[in-house]
Nucleic acid binder design. Structure first.
Lengths: 240, 240
DNA sequence: GTCTATATACGGATAGAC
DNA sequence: GTCTATCCGTATATAGAC
């Protein structure tokens, strides 16, 4: 699997994001025509991501947003009832999509090393498509209400747990080493986050998400390789 | 070296931080008595870190700060001329201290693997002492003026460069492998950042900074170990 | 040196015209 | 559905008393 394959299989665009947001929140959205809502939500969300990337969600005024999205204040408030609700809608919708994509990519039949490879790639590719959202969520999580913040933490635990389960399975089968699986999972997550938190750096250096993913996998596999004290299964747990 | 040794050798306390801030900014600080300034700066900075950790610097009002630091608005403004200046003072002072500590820990005589070990530990231990500052800087860098933001980026490049140099030296001497040193440096930095960005997680799990440092070193070393499959350097534990 | 009180601007949110 | 005009609270920053 590479990024191109991934894009062809999973089909998630900004438009899907907006359309789903519309269906999820249609009770609260005063405008009723789907096409209009989708079009405007797209402008709103793009503007939120852009301004938040530059100076943070808290520092973004509704007037900033109105200017960037090219809509009046009044029009904006037809789509959400408060700035906080806007934040929540974006967070919730993103979580739903990530959740779904991660769950779909898990294949109970595959071997642990394939599962791990698949999961790491999927997460990186997902964060490449939805980079603005991933960055936004990481930076703005602390501004959420307690209830919403707990959801973010639950998400973090959820993805970590999946990694740990795979590592344990591989460890039991002798494919991976017997080190601390939870810490290993944390390192993997740190490397995944690095990709969307420092994206500017990799853009500048022209490192593609595929190159990055390959490197992370190599890095992780070097650590996971079981101790090969004798002439046993010394190499290659590797690749498709 | 472990955290305890580090603490005994390097002596950096919050008070030092405040005293140096005073000397650096005495022109702009209306209060002149050192003891008073140091005491009050400490209250101010502690309060800034606390509130910013909870809701971010932008969302912190000067009234919040006044309440938390137990000083009046008027008193606060005797120590800085604007909220933005306050932010800059904190950022600058922290950078100066980190810079000094990193530079001091470099030992030109040591072997690359020792240098690397030393540098990774120093950075982790430093971020353990100055956790509030590290977290703060990461999260609030985007709120700085362009000039200050460039300083943060320069700092990032600086520490990355030191890592890359060590990796190259080790690589040349056959102690490390021949992989992409810049990407390796990025992975190391990502793992260092993980420590102060997700500190709550490790506190909850009772993982000490020493345990974390050991784990990171093990992780990194597994990757850096030169391929020793046989005579000659047949790399590739990898394919694709 | 520190306080209280206040100037002034800007924030989120809404009413009502079109 | 969208716009303009506006309400009103809260923000930063300062003046002047003590």
């Amino acid at each position: 699997m590479n990024y191109k394959d991934f894009l062809e299989n999973i089909n998630i665009t900004m438009e899907d994001f907006c359309r789903e947001s519309f269906f999820e929140n249609r009770d609260h959205i005063r405008v009723k025509k789907e096409a209009t809502v989708v079009k405007n939500l797209q402008r709103i969300f793009d503007a939120v991501f852009k301004i938040s990337y530059e100076k943070g969600f808290q520092a973004m005024s509704m007037r900033d947003l109105s200017r960037e999205a090219d809509m009046s204040m009044g029009a904006l408030y037809a789509y959400f009832s408060s700035k906080e609700e806007l934040l929540e809608i974006i967070q919730r919708q993103g979580r739903a999509i990530v959740n779904r994509a991660i769950t779909v990519c898990l294949d109970a039949e595959a071997s642990p090393d394939l599962k791990l490879r698949n999961l790491i790639r999927t997460h990186l590719y997902l964060s490449e498509i939805g980079r603005p959202w991933f960055y936004f969520t990481f930076m703005e999580a602390k501004n959420l209400s307690k209830k919403e913040r707990d959801e973010v933490l639950a998400m973090e635990s959820f993805t970590e747990k999946i990694l740990v389960d795979i590592l344990e399975e591989g460890s039991a089968k002798g494919i991976f080493n017997q080190k601390d699986h939870r810490l290993t999972a944390c390192m993997i997550k740190a490397m995944q986050q690095e990709w969307y938190l420092k994206r500017w750096k990799y853009s500048k250096r022209k490192i593609s998400v595929d190159q990055y993913a390959d490197f992370v996998l190599e890095f992780v596999n070097a650590f996971l390789k079981p101790a090969t004290t004798g002439p046993g299964k010394s190499e290659k747990m590797e690749d498709k």
